[in-house]
Amino acid sequence: MTHTVLVTGVSRHIGARVASVLAADPDISRVIGVDTVPPPSLTRDGGKSLGRTEFVRVDLRSPDIAQVIAAADIDTVVHMSLVSAPSRNAGRAYMKEHNVIGTMQLLGACQRSATVRRVVVRSTTAVYGSSPGDPAVFTEGVEPHDLPSHGYGKDAVEVEGYVRGFARRRPDIAVSLLRFANFMGPGVDSPLTRYFAQPVMPTVFGFDPRLQFVHEDDAVEVLRRMATDDHPGTFNVAGAGVLLLSQCVRRAGRIPLPLFAPAFRWLGEAARSVGLVDFSPEQLRLMSHGRAVDSSALEAELGWRPKFTTAAAFEDFLHSRLRGAA
């Protein structure tokens, strides 16, 4: 039984939702949410949306996280704190430190803990990279043709290496590693959702990549199930099916702007410098070659499948964020 849960990254949307759902579970005694800044809901609604969640301000790069785990007798850790894009203020160096060094500190604290018995880590399908030599669909055991060498994907590859090392050193702890496709839904704010919200959508000339999404409701449900029962292993998490980028553009009612790759990259750097959209080198590869994964291992493990397909998740995003605002 899960008694006391630590959720990292609660100042961001999905992390806050996971903490809230776990706090609503009567079988869970206590939920502690940690982040470097308070969740917006603490100031917006007095923390009502977080329920019983207790917020503690902690920088995962510091040893303080070990004191939190020890003081609260944490038995389950849900690590949601990976940052997918650098902020204008902090930049890429801080992002890498937060993702990699922060995870190392957290896992080190879990390794020394006598009470932790379950660890759930949010990762990303970006660990597979995007290249013309990729298989049509990635399963968890397929080695990527070209490992990501930039940004979030590269950080996630390093994080996963530390997670596997931790699992070997503490075989008594159930470790679940979840590779999520791009989150999509009404409350998701990411480089990709900001891209789809632009009136004109740059594309890479000559390419029409396959994209996959996971709806935020399904992501939260997967994390809830993983946090309340043991499901060790590595699992892809994505809505069924794929959408071509051209289909996304048409469904969003946007104007495509095909650009040669160097111009796309230049435009991305300009947009990133003013905080509009993050067209990183990794994003350029995704927008050229796409990526699709197989989530059947997760569905077999949980006896459950996502309610939203990739297309339905995108439609819900369009309805709530674009058409609803029109």
Score class of each variant (00 low, 15 high):
residue 192 L to G: 00
residue 249 V to S: 03
residue 205 F to T: 09
residue 174 A to H: 14
residue 237 V to S: 03
residue 196 F to A: 14
residue 203 T to W: 14
residue 186 P to C: 01
residue 259 L to N: 10
residue 182 N to P: 00
residue 215 H to C: 02
residue 204 V to Y: 10
residue 202 P to K: 05
residue 223 L to V: 05
residue 199 P to Y: 06
residue 221 E to C: 00
residue 189 D to L: 10
residue 258 P to F: 08
residue 208 D to F: 05
residue 202 P to E: 02
residue 248 C to L: 11
residue 227 A to E: 03
residue 263 A to F: 13
residue 196 F to S: 01
residue 223 L to P: 08
residue 205 F to M: 10
residue 192 L to Q: 12
residue 214 V to Y: 03
residue 215 H to E: 11
residue 183 F to E: 09
residue 219 A to R: 12
residue 251 R to K: 13
residue 230 D to E: 15
residue 252 A to W: 11
residue 262 P to Y: 12
residue 256 P to Y: 08
residue 198 Q to M: 15
residue 192 L to Y: 11
residue 206 G to Y: 14
residue 213 F to K: 02
residue 228 T to P: 07
residue 196 F to T: 07
residue 258 P to I: 07
residue 232 P to Y: 06
residue 198 Q to R: 10
residue 220 V to F: 01
residue 181 A to S: 15
residue 261 A to H: 07
residue 173 I to G: 02
residue 224 R to D: 01
residue 185 G to S: 06
residue 221 E to V: 02
residue 266 W to A: 15
residue 259 L to K: 07
residue 172 D to R: 13
residue 197 A to K: 13
residue 266 W to C: 03
residue 249 V to P: 05
residue 173 I to S: 02
residue 234 T to E: 11
residue 218 D to A: 09
residue 237 V to Y: 04
residue 218 D to S: 12
residue 210 R to P: 02
residue 262 P to I: 09
residue 197 A to F: 00
residue 210 R to V: 11
residue 248 C to Q: 09
residue 201 M to P: 00
residue 191 P to H: 07
residue 204 V to K: 10
residue 190 S to E: 03
residue 172 D to T: 11
residue 259 L to D: 10
residue 267 L to N: 03
residue 236 N to T: 00
residue 268 G to T: 01
residue 199 P to Q: 05
residue 253 G to T: 12
residue 209 P to C: 13
residue 225 R to C: 05
residue 234 T to V: 15
residue 226 M to V: 12
residue 202 P to I: 02
residue 247 Q to T: 13
residue 249 V to M: 03
residue 211 L to N: 03
residue 190 S to Q: 05
residue 241 G to D: 05
residue 263 A to Q: 10
residue 220 V to R: 01
residue 192 L to W: 12
residue 254 R to D: 03
residue 178 L to G: 01
residue 251 R to L: 13
residue 197 A to R: 12
residue 263 A to T: 10
residue 199 P to S: 04
residue 250 R to T: 14
residue 191 P to W: 06
residue 187 G to T: 11
residue 231 H to M: 06
residue 222 V to G: 01
residue 180 F to Y: 15
residue 186 P to M: 05
residue 216 E to N: 10
residue 234 T to L: 12
residue 198 Q to H: 07
residue 180 F to L: 15
residue 197 A to M: 13
residue 192 L to P: 02
residue 207 F to M: 07
residue 217 D to E: 15
residue 244 L to H: 15
residue 208 D to E: 14
residue 215 H to A: 09
residue 236 N to M: 03
residue 239 G to D: 08
residue 215 H to G: 14
residue 183 F to N: 09
residue 192 L to A: 14
residue 174 A to W: 11
residue 200 V to S: 12
residue 193 T to S: 14
residue 193 T to E: 04
residue 216 E to Q: 15
residue 254 R to F: 08
